[in-house]
């Protein structure tokens, strides 16, 4: 009981710190001297270098989902609904969330570790004392790159998941590719695609923001680099789950009614 005020104070202080950091991010987006080159470099690192991991994950996601659902639907004589079911479940929900969680593990931890080690080796302090703006150079570019690249990676993974679904369908039956994709896309509308893509923008923000916050505010010891990377993954994953719950609720109210 005696510890409660301290714990709550700590949590409120951390929440306040995050709000201040978020404020610094938004203020620095619009400051002069935007780091376009660094944004492109970070987009390359976050996007291109996650391409294979996300691509393989997406393909296997569609492949496994088809293999798992096909026998059940077959029992009801609804085998022809497999492409539609895979398309809806992957594009609406599974694709964005799984890819965001994969990216939280890869990108958020990488940003947390990188900025954490820059903090430990006093590189962030060196930028600050030189009169440069480390938030503009390090934080704004990484968060914006995440916001841009996570939706693109998710779209690519969704497309590969559909391809994976087609490959799995072809194991047991010979399915025409045009028929498969025609069946898949006939079940989809903008009401599925727009909320799904919109929420990946927020997932991208969460992945970039949490990684930057944890790394930028890590302690001075070398151990804190690992702590920053680890807590970035945990917090970003939690943010993604919470944001997804909110997005699904909002979508069911506004898009599907």
């Amino acid at each position: 009981m005696t510890d409660s005020p301290t714990i709550w104070t700590k949590h409120f202080a951390a929440a306040g710190d995050q709000m201040i950091f978020m404020g610094a991010f938004f203020r620095n987006i619009f400051r002069s001297g935007f780091e376009w080159n660094e944004l492109i470099r970070q987009s390359y690192i976050i996007g291109y270098k996650s391409f294979s991991l996300v691509g393989i994950t997406g393909f296997i996601l569609g492949f496994v989902l088809t293999l798992q659902s096909e026998p059940t639907l077959k029992a009801f004589g609804a085998e022809s609904f497999v492409p539609s079911m895979v398309a809806i479940s992957v594009i609406r929900e599974i694709g964005p969330v799984i890819i965001a969680l994969i990216c939280a593990g890869k990108i958020s931890s990488s940003i947390g570790a990188e900025l954490g080690s820059m903090k430990v080796s006093e590189q962030i302090d060196a930028m600050e004392v030189s009169g440069a703006n480390p938030v503009q150079y390090l934080v704004v570019t990484r968060i914006l790159a995440s916001i841009i690249m996570i939706p693109l990676l998710t779209l690519m993974a969704d497309a590969l998941a559909m391809l994976g679904g087609f490959a799995a369908s072809n194991i047991s039956n010979e399915v025409n590719i045009q028929l498969y994709f025609s069946k898949a896309f006939s079940a989809l509308g903008f009401a599925d695609l727009i909320p799904a893509v919109s929420k990946t923008i927020f997932f991208g923000f969460a992945i970039g923001f949490v990684g930057c916050y944890k790394g930028y505010n890590s302690d001075r010891g070398t151990e804190s680099v690992g702590v920053a990377a680890n807590s970035a993954v945990v917090s970003a994953s939690l943010w993604i789950i919470v944001l997804d719950a909110i997005a699904v609720q909002l979508t069911s109210v506004f898009a599907y009614n």
Partner: peptide, 24 residues
């Protein structure tokens, strides 16, 4: 300010390290 560790920016070459404060 010269830091104990020199605090060079790891991701940049020597030239880019020196260029950083000049351009920013």
């Amino acid at each position: 300010f010269l830091f104990q560790s020199a605090a060079l920016y790891d991701s940049m070459s020597v030239e880019q390290n020196l260029e950083f404060p000049l351009t920013r």
